[in-house]
Design a protein around this nucleic acid. Structure first.
Lengths: 121, 121
DNA sequence: GGAAGATATGAATATATGTTCATATCTTCA
DNA sequence: TGAAGATATGAACATATATTCATATCTTCC
């Protein structure tokens, strides 16, 4: 791990500048944080976890995740607006599914983090 | 991908029940969502991105991430409380670093998701 | 010890967002 | 066509949280 010392010498200005550019102060950071924001709510995360097990309709999602039908529907809309899930009407029902398989890996990493930090204590 | 049909037959009750347990309606979901919540704010994500490039003090973090010193300090406290970063005093300065290398992978996944979804459009 | 640098803290505010309730929309089936 | 099932929507509300300002704490150096 590179070390960036705490003085303010000329020598470090270049390093700081380089990191500053790498960190991308642009809209990219906003976009990435938005992805995480989708998984940052327990209600939405439950929905995503359920859909990672299989496509299903709102009725079953409500059954599995708990809460009200309206609440689940609202959360699904947010997830859909942010391209995390997609939907398809099947008769009376609407079947939801994961829109991007990257989500699976991201969630798996989150789980791994939890398990690891649990072991450390 | 397993398909969970939209009827409410007895036959599917078991499947739903199994998924329900897998989805872990317990505190685990809360904990995992909390990890994502830490990365769900652009300000905090900038800090994490910077620290992934190298350990550094608050002064340089403020320089890189922008905003006020107070704001960065508040964000660092949240990150520290949630075990995302750790700190070490070095004279007048306090050097922050990433507390768990899992974070790197999670952030990388977020970046990958962004790049991929950008290509799809 | 006092001054200046570096960081942390607390209160106050504004904003975002999750939740609930009531109701609308869309579909199927009799 | 009307009723019932399934989902979506809008408004209202409560809550969480990011941000700012002022100031306190801690450290080093003279």
């Amino acid at each position: 791990m590179e070390k960036i010392y705490c003085d303010r010498e000329q020598e470090h200005e270049a390093t700081i500048q380089r990191v500053k550019e790498d960190v991308m102060l642009s809209k990219d950071v906003e976009k990435i944080s938005k992805i995480f924001h989708m998984l940052a709510d327990a209600g939405r995360l439950k929905i995503v976890l359920a859909l990672l097990k299989g496509d299903m309709c709102v009725y079953h999602l409500t059954e599995i995740c708990g809460g009200t039908q309206s609440g689940v529907s609202h959360q699904l809309r947010v997830l859909k607006d942010n391209k995390i899930v997609k939907s398809k009407r099947l008769g009376k029902n609407v079947e939801y599914s994961i829109a991007d398989e990257h989500i699976r890996e991201i969630v798996e990493m989150g789980k791994a983090h939890l398990l690891c930090s649990a072991n450390q204590e």
